[in-house]
């Protein structure tokens, strides 16, 4: 079976691990256990095995260790809709990703859509879509838009690899 590496990146506590677990095991935990280094999981989507690298989030002390991104075929960028600063972060994160591994397919999850403090104003949204990213308002808690997020990324990767070289 074909295998593809994808990476989850974003600030700390935005829900990268939760989205991964919702998608891989259909589970969710309210408890926050921060990821150290990288946690690898896999799941099969349309005859492709996605190897998901759930990378430790960025915080004020430590930047993301971009070594973990090597060889990724696609990126899920995650922000927390209840913390506007994590949405802003996406832009610098994207630059960092491109610098390390070049242009690869990328989707954006603005997570915690179920939360009543969720807010994404038009200006923020426009700024994201103007980058050409697909935006998903996800909830790892309810599972809203989670399958769509990974499905769209996988399709996008399929589209570029079928044009270019097949891994």
């Amino acid at each position: 079976m074909q295998k593809r590496k994808i990476c989850m990146v974003g600030d700390f506590a935005v829900g990268k691990t939760s989205l991964t677990q919702r998608f891989v095991n259909n589970s969710f935990s309210e408890k926050y256990l921060t990821t150290i280094g990288v946690k690898i999981d896999n799941v099969v989507v349309d005859d492709t095995k996605l190897i998901i690298w759930d990378v430790a989030g960025r915080d004020s002390l430590s930047p993301i260790n971009t070594n973990y991104l090597s060889g990724a075929a696609g990126i899920v960028m995650v922000a927390d809709g209840t913390r506007p600063e994590t949405v802003e972060s996406l832009h610098t994160l994207a630059e960092m990703v491109v610098e390390k591994i070049g242009q690869v397919p990328c989707v954006v999850a603005i997570n915690k859509y179920d939360h009543n403090a969720f807010k994404l104003d038009d200006e923020q949204q426009n700024k994201l879509t103007s980058q050409g990213w697909d935006i998903f308002k996800t909830s790892a808690l309810t599972g809203d838009k989670v399958p769509e997020l990974f499905q769209v990324l996988n399709n996008a990767i399929g589209a570029v690899t079928s044009v270019g070289e097949e891994a």
Binding site: K3, G37, I40, N42, N67, S70, G71
Partner: peptide, 28 residues
């Protein structure tokens, strides 16, 4: 790469240091 998931996508010509990697049901 068939047996070891984390090798998928990596470049066999480059040095790479991955300090902490957790695979399912394994120690870091």
């Amino acid at each position: 790469r068939e047996a070891i998931d984390f090798l998928v996508g990596l470049d066999s010509h480059s040095t790479l240091d991955l300090p902490i990697v957790l695979s399912p049901s394994q120690n870091p």
